[in-house]
Design a protein around this nucleic acid. Structure first.
Lengths: 210, 210
DNA sequence: ACAAACTGACTGATCGATCGTTTTTTATTA
DNA sequence: TAATAAAAAACGATCGATCAGTCAGTTTGT
């Protein structure tokens, strides 16, 4: 007979994950000891190992950030209109995520995950898959924009997607290092970047959808 | 009386640094043991500690990448002409650095350094100072371009600099993760981004230099 | 009363760093 | 030129500390 309910069990799990997130955000994966996580969680060593098989298990559980993907997915729903407006919407979503004080720990752990991805195959898969979704979304938007003659056709949609993603990755770094980045001004610059992809002449050639 | 010359001494130092670079690139700072570096260097534990006080000393020595700064400085000399052409030149320099196979280890160590910068003040200072120089260079170019009416005045020069730097930071990540990034296509997209900063109308208003 | 949840002292392994010893090189002497 | 003394350089066995992970025993809720 289980002593605690599934809800309680999940709550304990989250309790440990939150402690681990805070510790990893402060000191990175490999400079954080299990003792730190244990102390912060308020539980004991044994209890933690009831919920996670190993420290690597915890790392992998935190390397995967589903919340952000869901936020992106929501913006997909809105992005069914003008492709370029879709790109702007996407930028807005990420800008908000970037400036949310509550997400500081997640961003820091994310950076540690980027480094860990260089040596841990499972973490790398998590990280790469994590950017695959927004990348595919941007590619779809751009290709639609190019098809409709709104976006320059001489640039690869894939290239545009990677540039936009790179911009946000770089901002996460610069922000987390504590540099005083004027996010608002930078987002304005990114908006100009996106407008730069727009065809200068309206390019009346607009083929019918297949 | 010294047994070995300064040249030999520096050579040994480099020998250790190269071993450490290779090890750190493979496994990160904290997953690399001194024993790994010792073995790779072909020396002994004691010998390594004759040249570096501690493992952290090695980390800090490698977190600072002067070579790249020098390359940027060289491109400064060329950038005395058209500001926008200066930006393109800068992109070319970084694109070359990004695709140089010999620089793979340095790029990977760089990423580990980005994560380490979150918890090690000295490493953070190295990293931040490392991007301060190209940032100042871009700001100078953009402000000159804006002054001459070549670059849109409604974007902050600082913001443009941070966007361009972020792009390259992101590309280093995506490249090192092993994703098949078409660097050439991406650089073409970046070129479009830069052109997007250009004033659409030539903006004849050109004030004389103060 | 019973079984699951939890505890925390404990373990073997591994870490960065040390230091007494050995090797190597150079300046000096024979 | 060959032998020698002296000192720096290099070595590597070894240290205490710390690590992730375990398990026999205790508590807790049903």
């Amino acid at each position: 007979m289980p002593k605690i309910s599934d809800k309680q069990r999940e709550s304990r799990r989250q309790q440990i994950l939150e402690a681990a997130l805070a510790c990893f955000a402060e000191d990175g994966f490999h400079q954080t000891g299990m003792a730190d996580i244990v102390k912060r969680s308020g539980l004991s060593h044994g209890a933690v190992y009831l919920y996670f098989q190993s420290k690597d298990d915890l790392i992998e559980a935190l390397a995967d950030d589903r919340h952000r993907r869901e936020a992106v997915l929501n913006s997909v729903a809105q992005g069914s209109g003008d492709p370029i407006e879709g790109l702007h919407a996407l930028v807005r979503v990420y800008a908000q995520w970037l400036t949310d004080p509550a997400g500081e720990a997640r961003r820091r752990v994310g950076i540690h995950g980027w480094a860990e991805a260089l040596r841990n195959r499972r973490v790398r898969n998590s990280v790469v898959e994590g950017i695959d979704m927004p990348r595919a979304l941007i590619v779809a938007l751009v290709e639609r924009g190019q098809h409709d003659g709104l976006i320059k056709r001489d640039i690869g949609a894939e290239a545009i997607a990677r540039v936009l993603i790179a911009i946000f990755q770089g901002f996460v770094l610069q922000k987390c290092w504590g540099e005083d980045v004027d996010i608002e001004a930078c987002m304005a610059a990114v908006a100009v970047v996106i407008e730069g992809f727009r065809t200068t002449k309206p390019d009346v050639r607009r083929r019918a959808r297949t």
